[in-house]
Design a protein around this nucleic acid. Structure first.
Length: 189
DNA sequence: TCATTGATGGTCT
DNA sequence: GACCATCAATGAG
């Protein structure tokens, strides 16, 4: 029996801040995806910030294309794409509008109705049934959104370089990966 | 425990 | 045609 914490949907203003601020503030928040009457819920424990067009590690560095259009759209929407031909990854578009900033969700801690492992961006999406259909989806909707617990918990945030972006030169060294210290659900490495 | 590699497809050049 | 914001299975040590 899982006891679901009381949750409050995050407002648009939450996402209108810069990617680094949103990334750190997303730790400890809850991701909910409701499909077929089943609510799948995970607590976010690891994220990476992608700063926008000038960030060579970010998809937005390609500029505005059909693929990256969502990144340059309004904050508070989901950017979902396929990577390495077989995995889905999910970002949260952050502000300010037009900058192309976003936050990659890398790992969650299972809370309710989660399918399989969640320590990694591809696994996370599989576990919450997130795929291309949710690209561009508004995160203030009622079936796919982020929420805060009414009673937040205390934790320490650790900074590390982002993973898998060695091609990005100096940008690959920036400490833009954040996770909850000592949480056992972060991706290994 | 660590390093290597195969699977697999959309996007960009 | 090359390149990936990955994961799981494999084999060496």
């Amino acid at each position: 029996m899982v006891i679901t914490p009381a949750l409050e949907k995050l407002p648009r203003s939450f996402y209108e801040r810069d990617a680094t601020t949103v990334a750190k503030d997303l730790l400890g928040r809850y991701l909910l995806h409701i499909t077929g009457g089943i609510a799948r819920i995970g607590k976010i424990v690891e994220v990476e910030a992608y700063l926008g067009q000038q960030d060579l590690a970010a998809h937005a560095s390609k500029g505005l294309t059909s693929r990256t259009a969502v990144l340059f759209g309004p904050p508070g929407h989901a950017y979902v794409y396929r990577i390495y031909g077989l995995h889905w990854c999910m970002n949260v578009v952050s502000g300010p509008v037009g900058k192309g900033g976003s936050v990659l969700l890398r790992a969650i801690q299972p809370v309710q109705n989660v399918l399989g492992p969640t320590r990694g961006p591809g696994l996370l999406c599989r576990a919450l049934e997130i795929d291309k259909r949710l690209n561009g989806h508004d995160l203030l909707s009622d079936d796919f959104f982020l929420a805060a617990a009414f009673e937040p918990e205390a934790f320490t945030i650790t900074n590390r370089p982002r993973i898998g972006v060695n091609y990005a030169g100096a940008w690959s060294h920036q400490l833009l990966r954040f996770y909850i210290e000592d949480n056992s659900f972060i991706s290994r490495r």
